[in-house]
Write a protein that binds this DNA or RNA. Structure first.
Lengths: 192, 192
DNA sequence: GCGATGAATGTTAGCCGCTAACATTCGAGC
DNA sequence: GCTCGAATGTTAGCGGCTAACATTCATCGC
């Protein structure tokens, strides 16, 4: 009965939210992101355009949604502070990936495919990662890393992950794990 | 008399273009990018909104303009193909920077400061770099580098440069060269 | 049960980025 | 001077997004 106690009002909101995400991703995938109107998505979800914007700040946000920061945060804290910043961030993400259930839902695939096909979304991805980057930079600076090195190390690793995701989306159907791993190997070659 | 023979018609176009850039950067810097309307910039430049869009595809493009690709292209070709892709791209950019006149115009500073202050522009930067990245990836693949490594190596280096530019913009007045150099050092530590 | 409260949604109006189609000015060359 | 074409102007409209106000509807105290 987990989460059965949440108020029905909140449930109602979650339901429309989920309906918007489902119909949105479906329409974007079917007829293209740019060719799909927010009004269309809203109508197909049985709701008003205004309600759409009450659930997503922008049209992009329906596609670019990722609440993985907490996982990353705890992972970076568990890395030994003696390492150089780049290696440290790389290993933090390796650990995050090891502890993640392989793939989870298929939405991820759909999302990435939409992003791959849409230039404006590819750019928009970076707005999303800025939060993550800021968090990582704070962590590194707290341990004495100078600001420039911290900023460069984090933005570089996030760029590698992003590139890996896009490549994974462009290629046919395969597991994501090895692609991520190979991308990080470019920054920290495996010695062995 | 260099370039004196270009038709006056083309000169006229260049002049309005320059006027748009000047007034645009001035207004963006003074009252903020988002708070400034394309119509305002056009009017201040003594021109119509439509003319603005005949010179720049989007509002962003007035700020995000960089024709450095040719320099980079020749530099990547001069790197020995034996190196691993990351080192190769890093060294190519080190060389580009050595051969560049220190700083040049002050527009760069203004542009970066506007970008630093405007989230949507920070994201938009990546749309611009996609062209550069594609070119670099093609070069690397031509020499036998596998696609993923090529994509990751280039996107990572471009991310480092971008981070360096933003940090330089955030900090007070100093030369850009050392910041770029230090950023690249994160990816290829100096041995000596 | 019933009314009151507040959350979720609806309605309307409008700004701004951007595009298309058509009209106009203005410089270059005969 | 006239003609051609490039640069600019005009008008109309779509789509993303916001603000201000109205409405439905589930919950809670009574």
């Amino acid at each position: 009965m987990l989460a059965a106690n949440i108020h029905r009002m909140a449930r109602r909101r979650e339901q429309t939210h989920a309906r918007l995400v489902d119909t949105g991703l479906r329409l974007f995938a079917a007829q293209g992101y740019d060719a799909t109107t927010v009004a269309q998505v809203a109508a197909a979800a049985g709701v008003t355009e205004m309600t759409f914007y009450r659930h997503f700040a922008t049209k992009q946000d329906l596609v670019l949604d990722d609440p993985y920061d907490p996982l990353i945060e705890s992972s970076i804290d568990q890395q030994p502070p003696g390492l150089d910043p780049l290696t440290r961030v790389v290993r933090a993400f390796r650990a995050v990936w090891r502890n993640l259930p392989e793939s989870g839902n298929d939405d991820v695939r759909t999302r990435i495919e939409i992003i791959v096909a849409t230039p404006s979304l590819r750019a928009g991805t970076w707005a999303t990662t800025e939060r993550t980057q800021q968090m990582l930079v704070d962590r590194l600076e707290a341990d004495g890393t100078d600001r420039l090195s911290a900023v460069v190390a984090t933005s570089v690793v996030l760029a590698a992950l992003n590139a890996a995701l896009l490549e994974w989306g462009r290629a046919g159907r395969g597991p994501l794990g090895p692609v991520i791993s190979a991308a990080l190997d470019v920054l920290e070659p495996r010695h062995g």
